[in-house]
Each structure stands twice: as structure tokens, then as C-alpha cells.
Design a protein around this nucleic acid. Structure first.
Length: 758
RNA sequence: UGCCCUGUAGCUCAAUUGGCAGAGCGCCUGGCUCUGGACCAGGAGGUUCCAGGUUCGAAUCCUGGCGGGGCAACCA
């Protein structure tokens, strides 16, 4: 199976830390689909993440239906989502929840916000509200209803609930900040009026909460600790926190975002999937070409493959798109040890063996498994003078490297004999209709090697002892990696290839209907469950075998030349620096600092005065560097005057660094502690250094330990790879957990190195 | 144009939190084989987006720039 190394990603880092620091005692996550469609491969990523996290950390994962929009949601989707999740192998126990079950609580909480003056009823029209929100660079304006009293708001809100108003006539909004740089904070809507029947709550409600108002609160109600959603919600996080803070409830879930799954050559947007179904481009939601779990399932993909695919792609915050070959790889890996090998000829070409004894039928025994798979079992393969081979396995005019049958050439029929092609029969159009071949006696599979060297081995079936079948081979739905402008022109016209006259070997009739096979040299297949009543059996191709003979088509990985990744472009754009103002120029000249450092200081209020004061007793350049690189960035929101220390203490710190009383690492640590305690730098530094390994003998011991452990590298060092000095220092540093002076280590390591290699 | 996120091998991700830039997939070569599969061995592929700075040492910290994505639904 695939590499079982436990995945490491930013979420696991966060959760491990929360657990270690005691921020939480149990991990509670949730998978929150809206029941308005079928689950697809993207949901598989999200659900394996959440259910996987819960399992790994011994926590739990809730299934919550985010059903706050009565107009699009339906029980059939609830049912299909549950079915798909169970199929994937996930178990949520009794933790099945519905956001709509929280409507009453949400309503009460909204009233609380109204009472606090943090929410108001707005009678403005929809498009006016939109207009008044402003744009990304222009602030919004206040609604004329923004300053209604809590009493009036409460009364109106209750009237909204009791159905006194029409759809769209009023909304409840949070009262935040109409000029907030984040658009989501410009008095977001909390409730709309919708006189619609909810699939679960019926006509109980005519006001419905929006996502932002419902989601975080639902998380809090359920005790969710980590609320993991996709990247497009990252701008919503600030609102998520605002609502929870405003409510002052004890439960405190946190939202984290990760990148959704994109699969090249597949349609992933729900809207487009719907139109494919509605326009009958595909055979419903479970068409084997669809990226829905229902489609994947019908195609024959097993949940194990989907889960291992999802684990292998990792979890990041980077928008990325995956090539389907990776999914294919996991499907094959799953099926390789599971699917017995049988013969199927998809596109039959008749072959007559001219010298085969008349009417003789030989029963050959053929193992189901190749030598490298440790499984037992075989079946009987009837063999006579009338056979079918794959049309593509014969070529009159073979390309270079063709390893199959050619006029006059020899191939082995798998599990049977070698044959030589002696004659090619064609119709009036020059189309090959039949091959006449010579049976080569004594070449049966398993017998001693003959001198003959077949070009290759091909599969076959017996004409009179085989059955017809329909075989469907699928390719990606799109002919381009992603839909550009128009879905219809992006569709791959060859996404379904149907072989109506395929021939199967006879053993198949004895197998159970849900058996998955490898059709030798073709791929993995199984019977289409939805067509059980069809006259001929219908087989779906689950995934083709890897095929290094095929010319790569449009869906192959991009070639190196195709991908320039705009690197040249990026290079060209040298950092054009903005011109300086006269004041800035004067400041730079006066301070004697370089541009970057100088401007960093100039841009922060009080920083110039701080710099001037500090540089009275310490070198200006050092003061500048330490300020720009370490002091100012650590400031975050607070201002310089809030610091528990002043410029004089800072100057002392800089001097400690300058006189090499402390290493850069130690000085940084000292500064960090000054932020917390405000204590004197020299005192802090000496306590830090006390815990340091400063005894040269001890360090020498450790250095020798390292050098012995990495003898090969010492040799490489001796041979001129002097850059390894840094590596040795690093290793010693690691062993003392950073608690030592690097310059001292360098001295010692260099000495020992010189001794060893001289 | 405002705010937020994000740039590591062709692709997707790692890198013990400042210490030798690695893995899987894909690709190429060889071996094995009665599957152009699987398996085994090897290989190519990197200016860690760019330019500066701090440091004994930077993919990692700082400044500036460039590229990509998201946000202005009475959807979620």
C-alpha cells in the first residue's frame, strides 16, 4: 500500500499544539455539507481530512447538515450524502446534526445582539443595501434604519418571525462598521424573510439565518474545537470571531481554512455538474465520468483508493490543481492485488490458424494471477483454430518499437501458443477482415524455450467459446485541464468509447456480478450495476493500465517546454523602487542607515526618536539593524511607548551584541524576554548564558561525537566540500538545543576537523 | 485600487521551526517477466518567485517588489 508515514501539515501542527498546551482536551471537528447536491471528490478530501483528524487524535467528527436555505435543500440529498459517507467508510455515531435544529437558539442569540445594540432591522431594498455597502476602495454608508432603538428592533424582529412581512421587505443586520476594509464586516446580513417550506422544519419558520450567523454558532453549540473549511471563507473568519465574541458564550471554536481540491480535466463546480446532468451530456449524477462519489462508485473505484488518494495530496493553503494520473495511480494500486486477470478482446479481429487440427478444442489451464502476486487460482481457457485478437494488436505497417503482430511476425498468445502471421485478408476498402496465422507446435506456455523470439505477448479469446459483451471505456470529461470560457467547447468528445462487440472468455459467467477484473493488457473493469437487465453484460473500465507505448494525448502531464511558469517574466521585473520624499532622503542621510532599514524605522511613529536616543550610546548601524529586524516586527499592535523598556536599555542590548558578549541568537532571546519582563538586558543575558554549554571540553566532546557519527561527511569535507562546516556546527548546536555560542563551536569544530583530516 | 491568503523539482507536498533542500507521482535507462502491467535497481530534473538586509549559517526572520487566488449574493 502507499507510504504510511503520518501526514504532517499545518492543521496537525495546530491541533497538536492546542492539545499540548491544554487549550483543548478533546478534538472535535465537523463535516458540514449543505444538502443541495451530491458529494464529489472534493468532499472526499474534506471528509477524509476531518474524519481522519478525529480518528488520529482520538476525538470525534460530527456530520452536520448546513441546511439554512429552504429553497435548494432536500431530504434526498441528505440521504445520498449519508450513503456516500458510509461508503467511504466514515462513522459519525450519534453525532448527526442539523443547523436547522438550532434555529430557535439562533433566534434567541440574535435577540441578545439586538439588546446589546449590535444588530438592527433594516427596511432597505435589496439593491440599495448592496449599493450602500460601498466598494473595496470606497467606504459604505449607513442605512437610515441603523440607529433604531433595541426595543423597536426587537419588536420588528419578532414581527418578522411571526410572518407579518413579505419576502425581501426587511432583514436583520449586525451593526459593525460600514467602512471596514474587510467587506464582510460592513453590517453583514443575519436573517432574511423567506416564506418557503423547509424540507426538515416545514413551515415553522419564515426567517432564515445566513451562513455566517449560523455556522460559527452551530460549531459553538456542538462544542466543535476546530472548524475546518475551504480557503474562500478566510475573509469570513473575522466575522466568525466577531459573532462569537459578541455573544460571550464560553465555547470557543476556531476556524481554519485549507485549499479545496481541484482535479484537472474534471468539472468540479456544482453549477456545471448540474448543467451536465440537465443537458444529458452524462447519464445522471452517477455517470462513471462524473467526479461525484456516486459516479466513482459506479465506475468501480473502491473507497480505499479514494481515501489513499486524499491522504497523499496533503492539506495546504495553496491553490493547486491535481492531475488525474495521481488518482489513477491509487486506483490501480488498490486493485492490483485484488483483481484476477482474465481475457477480454474489446475490438475483435478474427484469426484462423491454418494448421490447427480440424474442430479440435484444447483446454488450457491459465492462472488468475501473475507470478508476482501471491494468490492461487486458475481457470480453463478453451483454444481452437478460430480466435479473436485485439485489432490494435496487429499492424501491417508497424511503427518503430511495435511489440505485437505484423505480417510474417511471431507473437505469443498469452497462456497458449506462439503464432506467425502468414496472410492478411481485406475487404474492398482495404480494411483488414481476418488474419491467417500458422500455429507453432510445441511452443505452449510453460514448455521449454524454443529458439523462436516472439515480438510480444498478446491476449485472445476463442471464437466459439467466448461471449459477447459491451465494454465502456471512459476518459476525462474535458479536453482541457479546466473549463476556460465555455463548458460545451471544453468537453472531450471521446469521453465515452463503447465497444459493442467485445468478447469475453467463458470463465466470467461463473463469477459473481460485482467481481472486479483486470482485463489483461487493458485495465481494470467491472460490471455496470445499473444495467443488470441488459441482454449482453456491460462492463465499465475502472482505470486503464499504465501504458508506455501510447502516444501521450492532451491529458498527459504538461511537457517541460510548455511550462515556463513566467519565470523569465518575473525576472525581468526588477524591483523598481519608489522615489523618496525629500524628508525621507534627509532622514536617510542624517541617520546614515541603508534604505531598507532607514525606511522601516521612518515609517513607525516614535521610532525615529527612539533610534536617536538609543544611538547616543550605541553604534547607529547596529541600533538600526536591531530595530528594523527584531524590535519593530515584534511590536505587532502595540506602540513603542508601551514597551516595558526604553531606548537606553535597548542601546545596552545592542552593545552586548556589538561587543560579542552575546551571540545573535542569545541577544534575540534576551530581547524576547525584555518584552515580557522589562528586566535589564545584561541580567537577562547572563541568566540565558548560565544555562549555556560554555565549557570548551564539553563542547569538544560533543563535536567529536558528531564528527565520528558523520565520518563520511568528514571525508567529503577533507575532499574539499568545505561547506559542510556549517552542517557540523548545526549538528552540535542541535545537540545542545541551541544553548551554546556558535563562534566557540565553530572554533572547536574547525580545530578538530583540521586534526582529523591532516 | 482596499483587505486577506499564497509562491520549494514537470505536478502534488515535506524539510525536526534558523543547521546537508527531500518524498510520492510523472519522465528516462537497465534488470526480471509469457501483461508495453506489476516488481527491482539506477538516473535526469532546484538561483526554494525576484532584489536587498540581519546572521557563523536563511526555503525559514526583516524590508521592498513581482506573480497567483479570494472577498463587494436577501447562496453556502
Amino acid at each position: 500500500m502507499n507510504t504510511s508515514s503520518t501526514p504532517s501539515d499545518f492543521l496537525r501542527t495546530i491541533i497538536s499544539r492546542d492539545l499540548a498546551q491544554g487549550n483543548i482536551s478533546d478534538v472535535v471537528v465537523r463535516f458540514p455539507p449543505e444538502p443541495n447536491g451530491y458529494l464529489h471528490i472534493g468532499h472526499a478530501k474534506s471528509s477524509t481530512l476531518n474524519f481522519g483528524l478525529a480518528a488520529e487524535y482520538g476525538g470525534r467528527c460530527h456530520l452536520r447538515f448546513d441546511d439554512t436555505n429552504p429553497e435548494t435543500e432536500d431530504q434526498i440529498y441528505v440521504d445520498s450524502i449519508k450513503q456516500d459517507l458510509r461508503w467511504l467508510g466514515f462513522d459519525w455515531g450519534e453525532h448527526e446534526y442539523y443547523a436547522s435544529d438550532y434555529f430557535e437558539t439562533l433566534f434567541e442569540w440574535a435577540c441578545q445582539l439586538i439588546n446589546k445594540g449590535l444588530a438592527y432591522v433594516d427596511d432597505s431594498q435589496e439593491n440599495l443595501i448592496r449599493l450602500m455597502r460601498g466598494g473595496v476602495t470606497t467606504p459604505g454608508v449607513h442605512s437610515e434604519f441603523r440607529d433604531r432603538s433595541p426595543e423597536e428592533n426587537l419588536e420588528l424582529f419578532h414581527a418578522m418571525r411571526s410572518g407579518e412581512f413579505q419576502d425581501g421587505s426587511r432583514v436583520l443586520r449586525a451593526k459593525i462598521d460600514m467602512s471596514h476594509p474587510n467587506m464582510k464586516m460592513r453590517d453583514p446580513l443575519m436573517y432574511r424573510i423567506r416564506h418557503a417550506t423547509h424540507y426538515r422544519q416545514g413551515d415553522q419558520w419564515c426567517i432564515y439565518p445566513f451562513y455566517d450567523w449560523a455556522h460559527g454558532q452551530s460549531d459553538a453549540i456542538e462544542g466543535v474545537t476546530h472548524s475546518i473549511c475551504t480557503l474562500e471563507f478566510s475573509t469570513n473568519r473575522i466575522l466568525y470571531d466577531w459573532y462569537l465574541d459578541a455573544l460571550e458564550i464560553s465555547a470557543r471554536p476556531r476556524q481554519y481554512e485549507f485549499a479545496r481540491l481541484n482535479l484537472d480535466y474534471h468539472v468540479t463546480s456544482k453549477r456545471r455538474l448540474i448543467s451536465l446532468v440537465q443537458e444529458h451530456v452524462v447519464d445522471g449524477w452517477s455517470d462513471p465520468r462524473m467526479p461525484t462519489l456516486a459516479g466513482l462508485r459506479r465506475r468501480g473505484v473502491r473507497p480505499e483508493a479514494i481515501r489513499s488518494f486524499c491522504q497523499s495530496i496533503g492539506t495546504t493553503r495553496v491553490d493547486s490543481s491535481h492531475h488525474p494520473s495521481l488518482l489513477d495511480h491509487h486506483i490501480r494500486e488498490d486493485l492490483n492485488h485484488l483483481a484476477p486477470r482474465i481475457h477480454c478482446v474489446q475490438d475483435p479481429l478474427p484469426v484462423t490458424l491454418s494448421n490447427w487440427p480440424n474442430d479440435h478444442v484444447e483446454s488450457l489451464s491459465a492462472p488468475y494471477w501473475p507470478h508476482d502476486i501471491p494468490r492461487e487460482g486458475s481457470r480453463t481457457l478453451p483454444f481452437s483454430g478460430e480466435l479473436f485478437i485485439e485489432r490494435g494488436d496487429f499492424s501491417e505497417d508497424p511503427p518503430k518499437g511495435f511489440k505485437r503482430l505484423t505480417p510474417g511476425g511471431i507473437v505469443r498468445l498469452r497462456h497458449a501458443y506462439m503464432i506467425r502471421c502468414t496472410n492478411v485478408e481485406k475487404d474492398d476498402h482495404g480494411h483488414v477482415t481476418r488474419l491467417v496465422c500458422e500455429w507453432i507446435e510445441g511452443t505452449q506456455s510453460g514448455t521449454k524455450d524454443s529458439d523462436l523470439k516472439p515480438k510480444g505477448t498478446i491476449h485472445w479469446v476463442d471464437v466459439h467459446n467466448s461471449s459477447e459483451a459491451i465494454v465502456r471505456v471512459y476518459q476525462q470529461l474535458l479536453s482541457v485541464p479546466s473549463v476556460e470560457d465555455d463548458l460545451w467547447s471544453s468537453l472531450n468528445p471521446f469521453s465515452l468509447i463503447e465497444h459493442r462487440h467485445a468478447r469475453m472468455e467463458p470463465s466470467v459467467t461463473q463469477d459473481s456480478l460485482d467481481q472486479r477484473y483486470q482485463f489483461v493488457r487493458l485495465g481494470y473493469y467491472w460490471r455496470d450495476g445499473t444495467c443488470a437487465d441488459s441482454e449482453k453484460p456491460i462492463f465499465n473500465c475502472i482505470v486503464a493500465l499504465r501504458d508506455s507505448s501510447v502516444k501521450k494525448d492532451a491529458s498527459s502531464q504538461p511537457s517541460q517546454t510548455q511550462v515556463v511558469k513566467d519565470k523569465t517574466l518575473q525576472k525581468k521585473s526588477t524591483a523598481d523602487q519608489r522615489p523618496l520624499t525629500p524628508n525621507e532622503e534627509q532622514w536617510l542621510r542624517r541617520s546614515g542607515l541603508n534604505r531598507a532599514v532607514g525606511l522601516a524605522i521612518y515609517g513607525v511613529s516614535e521610532a525615529v526618536a527612539f533610534f536617536d536616543a538609543a544611538s547616543a550610546s550605541a553604534p547607529r548601524v547596529s541600533v538600526g539593524n536591531w530595530m528594523a529586524n527584531h524590535l519593530l516586527p515584534a511590536l505587532k499592535d502595540q506602540s513603542i511607548s508601551d514597551l516595558p523598556f526604553g531606548p537606553n536599555e535597548f542601546a545596552e542590548l545592542v552593545q552586548l551584541a556589538d561587543r560579542e558578549i552575546g551571540s545573535a541568537h542569545e541577544i534575540r532571546e534576551t530581547l524576547k524576554r525584555m518584552f515580557d519582563t522589562g528586566e535589564h538586558p545584561a541580567v537577562l543575558l547572563s541568566t540565558i548564558q548560565e544555562s549555556f554549554v560554555s565549557d570548551p571540553e564539553t563542547l569538544k566532546e560533543i563535536a567529536l561525537e558528531v564528527l565520528h557519527e558523520y565520518e563520511d561527511r568528514v571525508e567529503a569535507y577533507a575532499n574539499g566540500k568545505v561547506g559542510l562546516l556549517g552542517f557540523f556546527i548545526g549538528q552540535v548546536m542541535r545537540r545542545v538545543h541551541g544553548h551554546a555560542n556558535p563562534k566557540l563551536i565553530q572554533e572547536i569544530v574547525s580545530q578538530e576537523l583540521a586534526r582529523m583530516t591532516s
